[in-house]
């Protein structure tokens, strides 16, 4: 069978992925994580009497802690299978990617294991996060200079 014709045969037997449903679940769950973050900021500003800026740092640390703890307890990957990408896109997903890599490579030791593998997934996020921050920073700078 020709490769092109074979591709049609594969497509014929491809199961339907409910992409729309997955997107809605991810949207709602991701939104709920945002709401939880906002609630935490409100609580921290109220209880600790700190600025909103400081409170958002505390909020991020809290979410990272929760995501890492749930990863270590082996719960987070099960939650993701239900919540789809809703838990992966926020900061919780970033923390999860680092903690899961660290757990995986613990046996290979602190240097060749955890140290060199902890950014296995998060490395791309950091690299392109920094590059795009520089790019948009430049765009903003140029706009401000022109204005």
């Amino acid at each position: 069978m020709e490769k092109q014709k074979y591709e049609q045969l594969v497509q014929k037997h491809n199961p339907k992925e409910s992409k729309g449903k997955n997107a809605i679940i991810a949207f709602v769950v991701g939104g709920l994580v945002g709401v939880a973050g906002e609630l935490l900021i409100c609580l921290y500003t109220h209880w600790l009497n700190i600025s909103r800026n400081d409170a958002s740092v505390y909020m991020i640390v809290t979410l990272i802690f929760i995501a890492s703890l749930l990863t270590a307890l082996g719960v987070f990957d099960k939650l993701v299978s239900k919540a789809k990408c809703g838990l992966l896109i926020p900061i919780t997903g970033f923390a999860h990617s680092m903690t899961s890599a660290a757990i995986d490579y613990k046996k290979e030791g602190p240097i060749y294991g955890i140290g060199s593998n902890i950014f296995k997934l998060a490395g791309s996020v950091i690299l392109y996060g920094v590059v795009s921050a520089w790019f948009f920073g430049m765009v903003r700078y140029i706009i401000e200079v022109i204005a």
């Binding site: 491809n14 199961p15 990863t71 987070f76 990408c85 999860h96 990617s97 899961s100 890599a101 997934l121």
Partner: peptide
């Protein structure tokens, strides 16, 4: 899983296939 895909505890949604 560790060798061919993602870290074992990493939960990424997979297609039905």
């Amino acid at each position: 899983e560790k060798q061919f895909r993602n870290p074992t505890e990493y939960g990424s949604p997979k297609p039905k296939t």
